[in-house]
Simulated scan of single mutants.
Amino acid sequence: MHKILFVCLGNICRSPSAEAVFAAKAKSAHLPVIVDSAGTGNWHVGEAPYGPMQAAAKLRNYDLSPLRARQFTAADFNGFDLIVAMDEANLRDIERLRPAGNDTPVTLMMSYAPETGVTAVPDPYYTRDFDAALDLIEVASEGLLATLRA
């Protein structure tokens, strides 16, 4: 069983959406996975995902309401087989916490959708484009699913 952690900045928009989207796609594909999400920052620890993100996800039948923000820690390197960052800044912040000798892969979400020409999922907390973020997360989730199946 694959254990995958999705990581963004505050864990209230992109990474909880990626957690929910990928979990739904893996379930439909009958691929057993354990998924979670975290943020590199601690501003929203314990909070539900951002309301407008939840609303956009709900329109696509993804329920983010049970999720709560938490901060990424060095212990996550040992708890997951794969860590997926939403952008380069998140990836750098994750790598700064890597324990010596740990080889858990850390990848960019959009590396699973190279056909898009996009390297990062823009943060809809700032862009206000929740649908565009979900579009990218859905495409990249399909690519991640294909990678895990191969």
Rank of each mutant, 00 (worst) to 15 (best):
C8K: 02
R98G: 06
I34D: 11
L134F: 04
R60D: 08
P52W: 06
N11L: 01
Q71H: 11
E142G: 13
A150C: 10
A85E: 05
C8H: 02
L64E: 02
N61F: 14
D76Q: 08
T127P: 06
G41N: 15
H30Q: 12
F72D: 01
F77D: 08
S141R: 01
P124F: 14
G46A: 07
P105Q: 10
G39Y: 00
V35G: 07
S37H: 03
Q54C: 15
A18Y: 01
D76V: 04
S111Y: 07
I94K: 00
F80L: 14
K27L: 10
E19D: 15
C13S: 03
S17T: 12
M110T: 05
L97N: 11
T119R: 10
V121A: 03
N90K: 06
V84A: 09
H30E: 15
P16N: 05
G79L: 11
R60Y: 08
A56Q: 10
E47F: 12
V7K: 03
Y112Q: 09
G51K: 13
D76C: 05
R149D: 08
A113E: 00
E88H: 10
A23C: 14
T107S: 12
D131F: 07
L64S: 02
A38T: 03
S65A: 15
L64D: 02
L9A: 11
I83T: 09
D63Q: 05
A23E: 11
G41C: 10
L9G: 07
V84Y: 05
E142N: 12
A24L: 13
L108T: 03
P66C: 07
V84T: 10
V118P: 02
R128L: 14
N61A: 14
A23K: 15
F22K: 09
C13K: 00
A20P: 12
R14L: 01
K25A: 13
L108Y: 07
L136K: 03
A24R: 14
N61Q: 13
I4S: 00
A140F: 01
F22P: 10
S28Q: 11
V7E: 02
L9F: 11
G39D: 04
S28P: 01
L82A: 13
A85H: 06
G39H: 00
N90Q: 04
A120Y: 08
R96M: 10
A146P: 00
Y125A: 05
Y125N: 04
A74Y: 13
S111H: 11
A18T: 04
D81E: 15
A120S: 15
R128Y: 15
R68Q: 10
S111P: 06
V139R: 13
G10L: 03
K27Y: 12
T40Y: 12
T107Q: 12
E19F: 01
F22R: 09
G46S: 06
D135N: 13
G39M: 03
V118C: 10
L31H: 09
E47G: 03
L97K: 13
A75E: 15
S65Y: 07
R14T: 02
A26E: 03
Y112I: 08
R60G: 10
Q71V: 09
M1A: 14
L148F: 00
D93G: 12
V21K: 06
Y126F: 15
V21H: 05
F6Q: 00
L31C: 06
S17N: 04
D123P: 07
E19M: 06
A74W: 13
L97Y: 10
T73V: 10
L91Y: 06
A55F: 11
G41D: 08
V33S: 08
A69M: 08
